[in-house]
């Protein structure tokens, strides 16, 4: 994984293939009401790309780069929380 440039902007993760929401799009509200998640065991994991910190470097993670390996993906509420 190549180290990524650091800036003050706050880039975040996105689902691979997802269209960015347009602020002037009148269908934005309708889109919000549509559940994005279609998660099920036995079905493909949604691919995503997101900035990350990895062993001293800032990198970009893409889930599909890990095809061929077992992956554990853990979400948690926040750094410096207690559990």
């Amino acid at each position: 994984m190549a180290e990524t440039a650091i800036g003050c902007a706050r880039p975040t993760g996105s689902v691979v293939g997802a269209q960015p929401a347009k602020s002037d799009d009148t269908t934005a509200i309708e889109q919000k009401e549509t559940p994005v998640s279609d998660i099920m065991v036995g079905r493909p994991a949604p691919d995503f790309t997101a900035p990350a910190y990895h062993k001293g470097s800032f990198t970009q993670v893409k889930l599909s780069d890990y095809l061929g390996k077992w992956v554990v993906l853990c979400f948690y509420p926040g750094d410096f929380t207690f559990v």
Binding site: R10, P11, T12, G13, S14, V15, A18, V36, S37, I39, A45, P46, F48, A50, P51, A52, Y53, V61, L73, F75
Partner: peptide
Amino acid sequence: IADAAGRVGQAY
């Protein structure tokens, strides 16, 4: 992973 806007979390 930094999931600032929660988009990855939403997808899951």
